[in-house]
Protein backbone atom coordinates (compact mmCIF):
# COMPACT_ATOMS: atom_id res chain seq x y z
CA UNK A 1 0.00 0.00 0.00
CA UNK A 2 1.20 3.56 0.54
CA UNK A 3 4.63 4.01 2.13
CA UNK A 4 3.45 6.20 4.99
CA UNK A 5 0.72 5.51 7.50
CA UNK A 6 -0.41 9.15 7.56
CA UNK A 7 -0.77 11.88 4.96
CA UNK A 8 0.75 14.90 6.67
CA UNK A 9 2.36 16.68 3.77
CA UNK A 10 3.93 16.21 0.35
CA UNK A 11 7.46 17.20 1.32
CA UNK A 12 9.53 14.07 0.67
CA UNK A 13 6.36 12.12 -0.11
CA UNK A 14 7.16 9.31 -2.59
CA UNK A 15 6.15 10.18 -6.15
CA UNK A 16 4.99 6.62 -6.76
CA UNK A 17 2.50 7.06 -3.94
CA UNK A 18 1.24 10.35 -5.34
CA UNK A 19 0.77 8.60 -8.69
CA UNK A 20 -1.01 5.67 -7.02
CA UNK A 21 -3.42 8.07 -5.31
CA UNK A 22 -4.13 9.90 -8.56
CA UNK A 23 -4.63 6.65 -10.49
CA UNK A 24 -7.02 5.35 -7.84
CA UNK A 25 -8.80 8.70 -7.81
CA UNK A 26 -9.56 8.38 -11.52
CA UNK A 27 -11.22 5.03 -10.76
CA UNK A 28 -13.37 6.78 -8.17
CA UNK A 29 -14.30 9.41 -10.72
CA UNK A 30 -16.11 6.54 -12.50
CA UNK A 31 -17.97 5.70 -9.29
CA UNK A 32 -19.05 9.34 -9.03
CA UNK A 33 -20.63 9.07 -12.48
CA UNK A 34 -22.86 6.16 -11.43
CA UNK A 35 -26.53 6.71 -10.62
CA UNK A 36 -25.80 5.33 -7.14
CA UNK A 37 -22.53 6.97 -6.19
CA UNK A 38 -21.61 4.72 -3.34
CA UNK A 39 -19.28 1.80 -2.76
CA UNK A 40 -18.90 -0.23 0.44
CA UNK A 41 -15.09 -0.04 0.54
CA UNK A 42 -14.82 1.53 3.99
CA UNK A 43 -17.79 -0.14 5.64
CA UNK A 44 -17.13 -0.33 9.37
CA UNK A 45 -14.40 2.29 9.26
CA UNK A 46 -14.97 5.28 11.55
CA UNK A 47 -13.50 8.62 10.58
CA UNK A 48 -13.64 11.87 12.54
CA UNK A 49 -13.42 15.22 10.79
CA UNK A 50 -11.62 17.40 13.29
CA UNK A 51 -11.88 21.02 12.22
CA UNK A 52 -10.21 23.58 14.46
CA UNK A 53 -11.02 26.29 11.98
CA UNK A 54 -13.76 26.83 9.48
CA UNK A 55 -13.34 25.40 6.04
CA UNK A 56 -16.70 24.51 4.64
CA UNK A 57 -15.42 23.42 1.25
CA UNK A 58 -12.73 21.10 2.44
CA UNK A 59 -15.00 19.61 5.09
CA UNK A 60 -17.85 18.98 2.69
CA UNK A 61 -15.50 17.43 0.16
CA UNK A 62 -14.12 15.05 2.78
CA UNK A 63 -17.56 14.25 4.15
CA UNK A 64 -18.86 13.43 0.71
CA UNK A 65 -15.84 11.25 0.01
CA UNK A 66 -16.44 9.39 3.27
CA UNK A 67 -20.15 8.87 2.54
CA UNK A 68 -19.39 7.59 -0.97
CA UNK A 69 -17.06 5.04 0.60
CA UNK A 70 -19.66 3.98 3.20
CA UNK A 71 -17.47 5.03 6.13
CA UNK A 72 -19.04 6.14 9.42
CA UNK A 73 -18.18 9.75 10.12
CA UNK A 74 -18.27 12.10 13.05
CA UNK A 75 -17.75 15.83 12.76
CA UNK A 76 -15.99 17.75 15.45
CA UNK A 77 -15.55 21.50 15.24
CA UNK A 78 -13.62 23.35 17.88
CA UNK A 79 -13.70 27.09 18.35
CA UNK A 80 -10.39 28.80 17.84
CA UNK A 81 -10.61 30.31 21.32
CA UNK A 82 -10.32 26.88 22.89
CA UNK A 83 -7.04 26.49 21.02
CA UNK A 84 -5.28 28.91 23.28
CA UNK A 85 -5.10 26.19 25.85
CA UNK A 86 -2.57 23.58 24.80
CA UNK A 87 -4.33 20.96 26.91
CA UNK A 88 -7.52 21.04 24.93
CA UNK A 89 -5.73 19.73 21.85
CA UNK A 90 -4.23 16.86 23.79
CA UNK A 91 -7.54 16.14 25.51
CA UNK A 92 -9.36 16.09 22.19
CA UNK A 93 -6.74 13.77 20.76
CA UNK A 94 -6.96 11.41 23.71
CA UNK A 95 -10.75 11.37 23.50
CA UNK A 96 -10.47 10.35 19.87
CA UNK A 97 -8.09 7.60 20.81
CA UNK A 98 -10.44 6.37 23.51
CA UNK A 99 -13.35 6.30 21.06
CA UNK A 100 -11.49 3.85 18.80
CA UNK A 101 -11.58 6.00 15.72
CA UNK A 102 -9.77 4.62 12.68
CA UNK A 103 -8.81 7.85 10.97
CA UNK A 104 -8.75 11.57 11.67
CA UNK A 105 -9.06 14.27 9.05
CA UNK A 106 -7.76 17.44 10.66
CA UNK A 107 -7.78 21.12 9.77
CA UNK A 108 -5.80 23.22 12.23
CA UNK A 109 -4.40 26.75 12.06
CA UNK A 110 -1.03 25.73 13.53
CA UNK A 111 1.73 24.36 11.32
CA UNK A 112 2.79 20.95 12.59
CA UNK A 113 -0.47 20.22 14.40
CA UNK A 114 -1.17 16.98 12.44
CA UNK A 115 2.32 15.67 13.22
CA UNK A 116 1.67 16.60 16.83
CA UNK A 117 -1.57 14.62 16.72
CA UNK A 118 0.23 11.48 15.55
CA UNK A 119 2.20 11.58 18.79
CA UNK A 120 -0.99 11.18 20.81
CA UNK A 121 -3.03 8.70 18.78
CA UNK A 122 -2.74 5.49 16.79
CA UNK A 123 -5.33 6.36 14.15
CA UNK A 124 -4.43 7.35 10.61
CA UNK A 125 -4.05 11.14 10.40
CA UNK A 126 -4.87 13.05 7.23
CA UNK A 127 -3.86 16.69 7.10
CA UNK A 128 -6.68 18.87 5.76
CA UNK A 129 -4.53 21.98 6.07
CA UNK A 130 -2.20 23.04 8.89
CA UNK A 131 -1.89 26.79 8.81
CA UNK A 132 0.51 28.03 6.16
CA UNK A 133 2.35 24.72 6.16
CA UNK A 134 0.80 21.99 4.01
CA UNK A 135 -2.54 21.09 2.50
CA UNK A 136 -1.63 17.86 0.73
CA UNK A 137 -5.10 16.77 -0.39
CA UNK A 138 -5.62 20.09 -2.18
CA UNK A 139 -2.32 19.66 -4.01
CA UNK A 140 -3.23 16.11 -5.00
CA UNK A 141 -6.56 17.18 -6.43
CA UNK A 142 -4.80 20.00 -8.28
CA UNK A 143 -2.32 17.52 -9.73
CA UNK A 144 -5.09 15.11 -10.63
CA UNK A 145 -6.88 17.91 -12.48
CA UNK A 146 -3.69 18.80 -14.33
CA UNK A 147 -3.12 15.18 -15.27
CA UNK A 148 -6.69 14.92 -16.49
CA UNK A 149 -6.19 18.00 -18.65
CA UNK A 150 -2.69 17.34 -19.97
CA UNK A 151 -2.46 13.55 -19.66
CA UNK A 152 0.76 13.86 -17.65
CA UNK A 153 2.50 15.91 -15.01
CA UNK A 154 6.17 15.50 -15.93
CA UNK A 155 7.49 18.48 -17.84
CA UNK A 156 4.48 20.72 -17.18
CA UNK A 157 5.12 24.38 -16.38
CA UNK A 158 2.91 25.50 -13.53
CA UNK A 159 2.73 28.98 -12.06
CA UNK A 160 1.24 29.66 -8.64
CA UNK A 161 -0.03 33.22 -8.63
CA UNK A 162 -0.91 35.45 -5.71
CA UNK A 163 -0.30 35.63 -1.96
CA UNK A 164 2.17 32.78 -1.52
CA UNK A 165 3.19 33.88 1.98
CA UNK A 166 -0.20 33.34 3.58
CA UNK A 167 -1.20 30.38 1.42
CA UNK A 168 -1.87 26.91 2.74
CA UNK A 169 -1.90 25.55 -0.79
CA UNK A 170 1.42 26.70 -2.23
CA UNK A 171 3.92 24.57 -0.31
CA UNK A 172 2.17 21.25 -0.94
CA UNK A 173 1.77 22.09 -4.60
CA UNK A 174 5.45 22.99 -4.86
CA UNK A 175 6.58 19.74 -3.24
CA UNK A 176 4.08 17.58 -5.11
CA UNK A 177 4.54 19.08 -8.56
CA UNK A 178 8.31 18.98 -8.29
CA UNK A 179 8.37 15.37 -7.23
CA UNK A 180 6.12 14.54 -10.22
CA UNK A 181 8.59 16.25 -12.55
CA UNK A 182 6.77 19.53 -13.18
CA UNK A 183 8.41 22.96 -13.02
CA UNK A 184 7.03 25.59 -10.66
CA UNK A 185 7.21 29.37 -10.81
CA UNK A 186 5.81 31.57 -8.06
CA UNK A 187 4.32 34.88 -9.11
CA UNK A 188 3.03 37.51 -6.74
CA UNK A 189 3.86 40.75 -4.96
CA UNK A 190 7.47 40.40 -3.80
CA UNK A 191 6.50 41.04 -0.18
CA UNK A 192 4.04 38.14 -0.32
CA UNK A 193 6.66 35.65 -1.49
CA UNK A 194 8.21 33.79 1.48
CA UNK A 195 11.88 34.54 1.95
CA UNK A 196 14.30 31.79 0.94
CA UNK A 197 11.56 30.02 -1.03
CA UNK A 198 14.00 29.58 -3.94
CA UNK A 199 15.73 27.04 -1.72
CA UNK A 200 12.83 24.74 -2.56
CA UNK A 201 13.87 24.78 -6.21
CA UNK A 202 11.21 27.11 -7.55
CA UNK A 203 11.60 30.20 -9.70
CA UNK A 204 10.18 33.51 -8.54
CA UNK A 205 9.00 36.09 -11.05
CA UNK A 206 6.71 38.98 -10.24
CA UNK A 207 5.97 39.83 -13.86
CA UNK A 208 2.67 38.08 -14.52
CA UNK A 209 2.79 38.52 -18.29
CA UNK A 210 6.20 36.89 -18.54
CA UNK A 211 4.98 34.09 -16.33
CA UNK A 212 1.90 33.57 -18.49
CA UNK A 213 4.07 33.35 -21.61
CA UNK A 214 5.98 30.57 -19.90
CA UNK A 215 3.23 28.63 -18.12
CA UNK A 216 0.99 25.76 -19.20
CA UNK A 217 -1.32 26.41 -16.27
CA UNK A 218 -1.89 29.03 -13.59
CA UNK A 219 -2.98 28.10 -10.10
CA UNK A 220 -4.53 31.36 -8.93
CA UNK A 221 -4.63 31.84 -5.17
CA UNK A 222 -7.25 33.72 -3.22
CA UNK A 223 -6.15 37.13 -2.03
CA UNK A 224 -7.59 38.09 1.34
CA UNK A 225 -9.46 41.36 1.03
CA UNK A 226 -8.41 42.29 4.54
CA UNK A 227 -4.79 42.48 3.39
CA UNK A 228 -5.70 45.33 1.08
CA UNK A 229 -4.76 48.77 2.29
CA UNK A 230 -2.20 47.42 4.76
CA UNK A 231 1.59 47.48 4.79
CA UNK A 232 1.40 44.51 2.44
CA UNK A 233 -0.87 45.69 -0.37
CA UNK A 234 -2.02 49.18 -1.28
CA UNK A 235 -5.31 48.57 -3.05
CA UNK A 236 -7.55 46.20 -4.97
CA UNK A 237 -7.17 48.11 -8.22
CA UNK A 238 -3.39 47.99 -8.03
CA UNK A 239 -3.42 44.27 -7.24
CA UNK A 240 -5.82 43.64 -10.08
CA UNK A 241 -3.70 45.56 -12.54
CA UNK A 242 -0.51 43.73 -11.56
CA UNK A 243 -1.71 40.23 -10.68
CA UNK A 244 -5.37 39.89 -11.62
CA UNK A 245 -6.22 37.23 -14.20
CA UNK A 246 -8.42 39.42 -16.35
CA UNK A 247 -10.12 38.52 -19.57
CA UNK A 248 -8.01 41.02 -21.54
CA UNK A 249 -4.79 39.73 -20.09
CA UNK A 250 -5.71 36.16 -20.92
CA UNK A 251 -6.74 37.18 -24.44
CA UNK A 252 -3.43 38.99 -24.98
CA UNK A 253 -1.58 35.74 -24.61
CA UNK A 254 -2.31 33.90 -27.79
CA UNK A 255 -2.07 30.49 -26.21
CA UNK A 256 -4.13 28.05 -24.23
CA UNK A 257 -3.40 28.56 -20.53
CA UNK A 258 -5.28 26.36 -18.09
CA UNK A 259 -6.70 28.30 -15.15
CA UNK A 260 -7.08 26.75 -11.71
CA UNK A 261 -8.27 28.18 -8.40
CA UNK A 262 -8.54 26.36 -5.05
CA UNK A 263 -11.54 28.47 -4.08
CA UNK A 264 -13.28 30.36 -2.72
CA UNK A 265 -12.71 32.97 -5.41
CA UNK A 266 -12.75 36.73 -5.10
CA UNK A 267 -14.24 37.43 -8.49
CA UNK A 268 -13.02 40.74 -9.81
CA UNK A 269 -9.93 40.73 -7.63
CA UNK A 270 -7.52 37.92 -8.39
CA UNK A 271 -9.66 36.48 -11.17
CA UNK A 272 -12.35 37.84 -13.48
CA UNK A 273 -15.72 36.14 -13.66
CA UNK A 274 -15.37 35.71 -17.41
CA UNK A 275 -12.11 33.84 -16.85
CA UNK A 276 -13.39 31.77 -13.93
CA UNK A 277 -16.42 30.67 -15.96
CA UNK A 278 -14.57 30.51 -19.27
CA UNK A 279 -13.35 27.62 -21.35
CA UNK A 280 -9.81 27.65 -20.06
CA UNK A 281 -10.81 27.26 -16.42
CA UNK A 282 -10.95 23.81 -14.84
CA UNK A 283 -12.10 25.10 -11.46
CA UNK A 284 -15.23 22.93 -11.29
CA UNK A 285 -13.24 19.86 -12.35
CA UNK A 286 -11.04 20.58 -9.36
CA UNK A 287 -14.09 20.39 -7.09
CA UNK A 288 -15.18 17.03 -8.52
CA UNK A 289 -11.62 15.72 -8.45
CA UNK A 290 -11.42 16.86 -4.85
CA UNK A 291 -14.04 14.31 -3.86
CA UNK A 292 -12.49 11.59 -6.02
CA UNK A 293 -8.96 12.16 -4.78
CA UNK A 294 -10.07 12.30 -1.15
CA UNK A 295 -11.90 9.01 -1.72
CA UNK A 296 -8.67 7.55 -3.06
CA UNK A 297 -6.63 8.86 -0.13
CA UNK A 298 -9.09 7.54 2.46
CA UNK A 299 -9.42 4.25 0.63
CA UNK A 300 -5.67 3.67 0.38
CA UNK A 301 -4.83 4.85 3.90
CA UNK A 302 -7.69 3.23 5.78
CA UNK A 303 -7.02 -0.07 4.07
CA UNK A 304 -3.88 -0.56 6.05
CA UNK A 305 -3.71 -3.95 7.67
CA UNK A 306 -4.68 -3.76 11.33
CA UNK A 307 -1.85 -4.80 13.63
CA UNK A 308 -3.67 -7.73 15.21
CA UNK A 309 -4.16 -9.24 11.76
CA UNK A 310 -7.97 -9.31 11.94
CA UNK A 311 -10.02 -7.19 9.65
Amino acid sequence: MLTHKHLLGLENYPSKDIQAIIDTAFQFREVLDRPIKKVPSLQGVTIVNLFFENSTRTRISFELAQKRLSADTVNFSASSSSLKKGESFKDTAQNIEAMKIDAVVMRHPAPGAPLHLTQFIDAVVINAGDGTHEHPTQAILDMMSLQEKFGKLAGLKIAIVGDILHSRVALSNIHGLQSMGAEVTLCGPTNLIPSFVEDLGVTVNSNLDEVMEWADALNVLRIQRERMGSALLPSVREYRSLFGITEERLANHKKEIVIMHPGPMNRGVEIDSQVADGGQAIILDQVLNGVASRMAILYLLCGEKPEDGNA
Binding site: P111, G131, S195
Partner: peptide, 15 residues
Amino acid sequence: NEGPMSTRLGLSGNP
Protein backbone atom coordinates in the same frame (compact mmCIF):
# COMPACT_ATOMS: atom_id res chain seq x y z
CA ASN B 1 14.38 31.98 12.67
CA GLU B 2 13.30 33.37 9.32
CA GLY B 3 15.00 31.17 6.78
CA PRO B 4 14.49 28.20 4.47
CA MET B 5 13.31 26.09 7.40
CA SER B 6 10.59 28.52 8.52
CA THR B 7 9.39 28.68 4.91
CA ARG B 8 9.33 24.87 4.68
CA LEU B 9 7.46 24.53 7.95
CA GLY B 10 5.04 27.37 7.25
CA LEU B 11 5.97 28.98 10.56
CA SER B 12 6.30 32.75 10.76
CA GLY B 13 9.90 33.83 10.77
CA ASN B 14 11.86 36.15 13.03
CA PRO B 15 14.57 37.76 10.88
